[in-house]
């Protein structure tokens, strides 16, 4: 848990800020621009910043399988995200989004949410991105268009991103520091799995005759939550899907006489 282990508690450690700043600079360089993008410098900066962040995040406690997997997935997810943001070719960007989704799925798996991993991948990688690839194929058969080679205010966008991420990290660090000093609610956040979970595991993991159930308890628990606490939202999500489907059909219908010539 010692992402911010070293250094004085309560002080912003400037390594993070520098790492983020270099990353922002890298993304700025990588973003498409009419002058051509500085791919090499940008890639080096971005990867360097990413590596630095990973290094800073490495705990002194040593290397375990889980740490390794976490860093792998996290780094790949972030690289994929950077690709999505900076790729000139929209189709490639869409594919790199698939990578993000898969890596986030991996992280979810590490967080003991296998069902969500599957759902996330199926919905995003399997449905959303694929359909968008279709649209891209329909729309941009000639490859990336003029607009893809330009970005809107890349400098301001990167600056905003830098400021936002820096303040988010700073706040997280503050809480983490306080938690490490034994103060505050974030301690509760970092507490090991709560008693509740134990109870759930003890009571629900076995059948009536004492045999362990199938290993997919996450799904069991999730299902139980969905049909108790979250029953109403489930119904609402159903209504929403109906409206959206009808809406998509409504929009896609070619209405006579409504097409506007550009």
């Amino acid at each position: 848990m010692e992402l911010f282990a070293a250094g004085q508690p309560g002080l912003f450690r400037f390594e993070y800020f520098f790492a983020l700043a270099i990353g922002a600079l890298g993304i700025y360089l990588l973003l498409p621009s009419p002058r051509g993008k500085a791919s090499v410098a940008g890639s080096i900066a971005t990867l360097g910043s990413l590596g630095w962040l990973c290094f800073l995040g490495l705990a002194p406690g040593g290397f375990t399988i889980e740490t390794g997997l976490f860093h792998l997935f996290a780094a790949l997810a972030l690289v994929g995200a950077v690709f999505l943001v900076t790729q000139t070719n929209p189709a490639r960007a869409a594919l790199s989004f698939v990578m993000v989704v898969i890596c986030v799925g991996g992280l979810m798996l590490l967080l003991a949410a296998p069902f969500l991993m599957a759902a996330n991948m199926i919905v995003y990688a399997g449905a959303i991105v694929v359909t968008f690839l279709f649209v891209l194929m329909l729309a941009q058969q000639d490859g990336p268009s003029d607009a893809d080679n330009r970005s809107r205010e890349p400098g301001l966008a990167c600056f905003t991103g830098l400021a936002l991420s820096a303040s988010l990290l700073l706040l997280l660090q503050r809480d983490q520091d306080n938690a490490d000093r034994g103060l505050g609610q974030m301690k509760a956040l970092n507490a090991p799995v709560a008693e509740l979970r134990l109870k759930q595991e003890q009571t629900l993991r076995r059948e009536a005759n004492g045999r362990p159930t199938a290993p997919a308890d996450n799904t069991t628990f999730l299902g139980q939550t969905l049909y108790t606490t979250l029953l109403l939202p489930v119904e609402l999500a159903g209504a929403l899907l109906l409206v959206a489907t009808a809406g998509a059909i409504l929009i896609a219908q070619r209405r006579p006489g409504t097409e506007v010539t550009p």
């Binding site: 706040l171 306080n178 000093r181 103060l183 505050g184 609610q185 974030m186």
Partner: peptide
């Protein structure tokens, strides 16, 4: 209720800063 309770805490640091996010 949790936020209210934590804001009553005598230690100012005890209030999670992430609540502002």
């Amino acid at each position: 209720a949790v936020l209210a309770e934590s804001s009553l805490s005598p230690v100012p640091e005890a209030v999670p800063a992430a609540r502002l996010v």
